[in-house]
Nucleic acid binder design. Structure first.
Lengths: 228, 228
DNA sequence: ACCTGAACACCGTTCAAGT
DNA sequence: ACCTGAACACCGTTCAAGT
C-alpha cells in the first residue's frame, strides 16, 4: 500500500545487529543472569520497547545469539577415520559450547537447540554410520553422546559459577546452613563427589562411551529378550 | 536471656512443614515456573516475608524440597551382580528424578545436587569397584553416567514441556518465525533430531556406556601416549 | 517506520514496626 | 518469636501515543 516500498518513515537508530552486539557484550562481561531486555535497552541508551521492534521477544534474542555463535563453522578439520571423526566432532561440539560462556545458560531451559550446531551433528551421525551402525543406531549414538556432553557442560558450568563467586552462591550457603542431622546426605557431600571435571575426564568418558556404542554387541536386535 | 527457654513469644501459624507441603502442591499442579515466594505466601494466606522466618531464602526452599523427595529411599532392591547393580542404580536415579516433575527445574541451575541421591551414588561407585575398576576410575565412571543421565533428563523435560503447551513455547514460536534463509540450520531441524527420547533409548545408551567404561582397555594407564 | 512513556502483572529480599 | 506492610530494585510484555 506504499509508493516506493522502502525508505518510508523515520530512519532507524537501533538495528538487530547492534542489539546482538550489545547483548553479547553483556553476556561475556557480566554473565547470562544480567542480560535482560531492560538492561540491554539501557546499554543502548534506548527504551525496553524499542528492542521489540527488532526482535520478537527475549527468547528470539537468545536464539539469535546462539545461532550467531554456533552458526559459524569453527574451522577445525575433522579426521577421516570414522571413530576418530566421531570423537573429534563430539569434542569440537563441547568446545564450541564451552567457549561461549553463556551457551549453557541458553541451553539449560530448552536443551534441544543442540541442533544449531548442525555441521558437527551430521558429522557425528555420518561417522557413526561409517563405523558400521545402521541409521537408527547412529542417531541413537549421537543422542547418547549429546546427552553426555550437555550434562558434563552443565555440571562444569555450575561448579565454575560457584567458584567464581568464591564459593558463595546462595545455593551453597543454603547447603552449608542445613542441619547435618536432618539432612545428612546433602550436608555431607555438598559438592565433593563432583570434583573438578577436567577436559581429560570428558575425553576419557567420551572414548568409553564411543567404544561402548561401537562394541560388537551393539549389532544385536534392539528388542532384547527381557531377563528374569 | 529468657526464663524457660522454649514456648516464649507468639505461637507460630506457619511451619516449615506446611510451607514445604504447599510448595510441593504448586510444583506438582502448576509447574516449577509458578513457584515463587509471593505465590506461595498467597497459597498459605500469609505474606511473603512470613516465609523467611522458616526458610533462609528461596534456594534453601528448593533444596529442602529436593532433599525431601530424594532423601527417602525408593525401596527398589538393587541386584547383587555388579554390572547389573550399576545399571539398576543408574536407572533408579533417573526414575527418581524423572518422577518428581520439578526435580529437573531445581537441578538445572545447579547440577551438582546430584549428591542428594546419595544411596544410589554410592551404590554406583561401589558396583563399579566390584566390576574391577580402581577407586579413581569408579568415581569417574559414576560421573560419566551421571552426566549422561542428567543430559537425557533435561532434554526429555524440555521436549515434554514444549509438547504440553501443544508445541507452542515462546522458544518454538521464535524458532518457527526465523527466516530459513538466514538461519538455515535452526530452521531446518527445529527439534527433529531430538525425536522422542524413550526409556528404552536411555537403557540402551546406558548399557553401551557401562560396557564402554568396563571394557578391558579401561585398565590401561590414564595418561595414554598422544597419537599423531 | 521507528521510538517513547506509562502501565500491568509479576519477581526476591530488606527493613522497621507491630503483637 | 512470629508476623505484617511498605519499600527497593528489579523482571517481560502490552498498549496508546508521539514523530
Amino acid at each position: 500500500m506504499e509508493p516506493g516500498g522502502t525508505r518510508a518513515g523515520r530512519p532507524p537508530r537501533l538495528s538487530r545487529e547492534a542489539i546482538l552486539r550489545s547483548a553479547e557484550r553483556i553476556l561475556l562481561e557480566e554473565g547470562a543472569e544480567h542480560l535482560s531486555m531492560r538492561r540491554l535497552a539501557k546499554e543502548l541508551r534506548s527504551t525496553p520497547m524499542a528492542l521489540y521492534h527488532h526482535v520478537r521477544n527475549k527468547d528470539e534474542l537468545l536464539l539469535l545469539l546462539l545461532e550467531m555463535h554456533t552458526g559459524e563453522p569453527d574451522g577445525t578439520e575433522l579426521p577421516r577415520e570414522p571413530r576418530e571423526r566421531l570423537l573429534a566432532a563430539a569434542r569440537s561440539l563441547r568446545e564450541t559450547l564451552a567457549n561461549s560462556p553463556w551457551a549453557a545458560a541458553v541451553l539449560a531451559p530448552d536443551a534441544r537447540v543442540s541442533a544449531s550446531t548442525g555441521r558437527l551433528v551430521t558429522a557425528m551421525v555420518d561417522a557413526a554410520v561409517a563405523c558400521g551402525l545402521d541409521r537408527e543406531r547412529a542417531v541413537h549414538a549421537y543422542r547418547v553422546i549429546w546427552h553426555y556432553t550437555l550434562g558434563e557442560l552443565l555440571v562444569r558450568r555450575s561448579r565454575e559459577r560457584a567458584r567464581r563467586q568464591d564459593g558463595d552462591t546462595p545455593w551453597e550457603r543454603a547447603v552449608r546452613s542445613l542441619d547435618p542431622d536432618v539432612h545428612p546426605v546433602l550436608a555431607r557431600c555438598g559438592g565433593r563427589l563432583a570434583e573438578d571435571a577436567t577436559t581429560s575426564d570428558y575425553r576419557r568418558g567420551l572414548e568409553a562411551i564411543v567404544d561402548g556404542l561401537l562394541r560388537p554387541g551393539a549389532a544385536r536386535p534392539l528388542l532384547a529378550p527381557p531377563r528374569d
